[in-house]
Design a protein around this nucleic acid. Structure first.
Length: 408
RNA sequence: GGAGGGGUAGCGAAGAGGUCAAACGCGGCAGACUGUAAAUCUGUUCCUUCGGGUUCUAUGGUUCAAAUCCAUAUCCCUCCA
């Protein structure tokens, strides 16, 4: 299978700017870039699903450059619905550092920051050198901007696409970049760059977008309510990641395997066959978790996460000593216990619930267990004597959330 | 600068003086079923010492009573200049 066929089979191609791209990807070695704005200090799993294309293309001999939008992040890519809240320069700076480091660690490719070349362009030059080439009518036609005309869009965000276009042109001149790859929501920005290059230099640049990875309900992959799934293992443990991946639905899991792992077509088809024979074994989900976590956090982390999950979901914990638990469940959220306290108070103290009302609701609803025993008495006194080895409590909320209570 | 329309819980959206801690939908969280799945069903979703307390952008005011009326401020949107 050649490069383009491979991407296509995995469902990674949504739009290409020109049919010529297929031949180029198969026969030439291109330098390409993929970017993100520093809206947080860590990438999340959604970024991973799109940045992986860099590694894939690199395997076919193309040269990736990862762009962190230190400048564009200060402006804000228009969202379809409302104006973005601007983030402070300090925060952007901090986020840039976080992302740079992470991008290098995980993907190992060259990382650039568009702040470096945008910061010194003054307003007049910007308008003359770039603004003059792009017609406002053309910009108004862009889907994202058109959609915002009803609800309003500031000049700041309106101009965003021009900065991205400028990036593309800059990277072409500076590093010979001829291709930009991104999620499908970036199509408008990619085409601005292509348009700009054609008008400024009479050069054809190329763009390619990937479909958003969605789950069966049309929710973006990795979008869990509450907290995002970060790639930084200090923010999201391997265990949490494992839990997310293992719970992928049957409908989507094969698609995820294609898009998020480097398994070959043959391997994936074999897994699919076996999975369909015994879906309850969740071979596909387990394989997905293994591949993704190993890529991101390494084999050791994966083993730990798997071991922890096995232990927690097969009732084997009853046989564990406090030492086993402390050794193996290091990543679990910890609550330092000091003295005897009522169960309802413990839930609040440990940030398991945000109010006493909620704590009671959960306790009365049979959702809380201590060391695998359901407790439905709010006034139950959590005490040292009942802890495993007088030391540890495994606190479970609902079916899947575990916390570790420790007496020091 | 002018004219108009708005700001209600995480989000969307009803409510237009008392029966409003605020319908409904989504989302969230639990429970049942299960494969740690999906679908489905059920409960719940401001705080509480369970007496009550604090909410509908903010501050004042009218009233026995205000999310609802008035004034001012503020933010957002639309149109005009």
């Amino acid at each position: 299978m050649n490069c383009f066929e491979d991407l296509k089979w995995r469902g990674l191609i949504k739009d290409v700017s020109s049919p010529l791209l297929e031949k180029k990807l198969n026969e030439e070695k291109l330098t390409f870039y993929i970017g993100t704005d520093p809206t947080a200090d860590s990438m999340h799993i959604g970024h991973f699903s799109s940045f992986l294309i860099a590694t894939r293309l690199a395997k076919y001999g193309h040269k990736p450059i990862l762009l962190i939008g230190g400048a564009t992040g200060l402006i804000g890519d228009p969202k379809p619905s409302v104006e973005r809240q601007m983030i402070t320069k300090e925060e952007v700076l901090k986020n840039v550092e976080g992302l740079k480091k992470q991008a290098k660690e995980i993907f190992g490719f060259e990382v650039v920051n568009n702040y470096d070349w945008i910061k010194d362009i003054n307003t007049i030059d910007f308008l003359r050198d770039y603004g003059k080439y792009i017609n406002v009518n053309y910009m108004l036609d862009k889907d994202i901007i058109a959609r915002r005309l009803e609800s309003g869009i500031t000049f700041c965000e309106f101009a965003y696409t021009l900065l991205q276009g400028l990036d593309f042109v800059h990277l072409y001149k500076d590093k010979g970049v001829t291709l930009q790859v991104a999620g499908s929501d970036q199509w408008g920005n990619i085409t601005t760059g292509i348009e700009l290059a054609r008008k400024m230099m009479d050069t054809e640049l190329f763009g390619m977008t990937m479909p958003l990875v969605l789950d069966a309900n049309g929710v973006k992959f990795g979008k869990t309510e509450g907290n995002a799934l970060w790639l930084d293992k200090n923010k999201t443990s391997s265990y949490e990641l494992y839990q997310y991946l293992i719970n992928s639905s049957d409908e989507c899991v094969i698609d995820y395997l294609k898009k998020l792992t480097f398994l070959t077509k043959e391997e994936i088809e074999e897994i699919e066959r076996k999975h369909n024979e015994n879906p309850e074994l969740r071979l596909a989900q387990k394989t997905l978790a293994k591949e993704v976590i190993t890529f991101l956090h390494g084999a050791d982390e994966y083993k730990k996460a798997e071991m922890m999950s096995e232990a927690l979901f097969t009732e084997a914990i009853n046989n564990l000593s406090s030492k086993d638990i402390l050794d193996n469940f290091k990543d679990m959220e910890k609550i330092i216990l000091k003295e005897d306290m009522k169960l309802e108070d413990l839930l609040i103290y440990g940030n398991i619930c945000s109010s006493k009302r909620e704590a009671r609701e959960l306790i009365n609803g049979n959702a809380i267990s201590l060391n695998n025993v359901k407790i439905n008495d709010c006034y139950y006194i959590v005490n040292k004597a009942q802890a495993i080895d007088n030391k540890v409590y495994l606190i479970k909320k609902g079916k899947k959330k575990y916390y570790l209570g420790i007496y020091e």
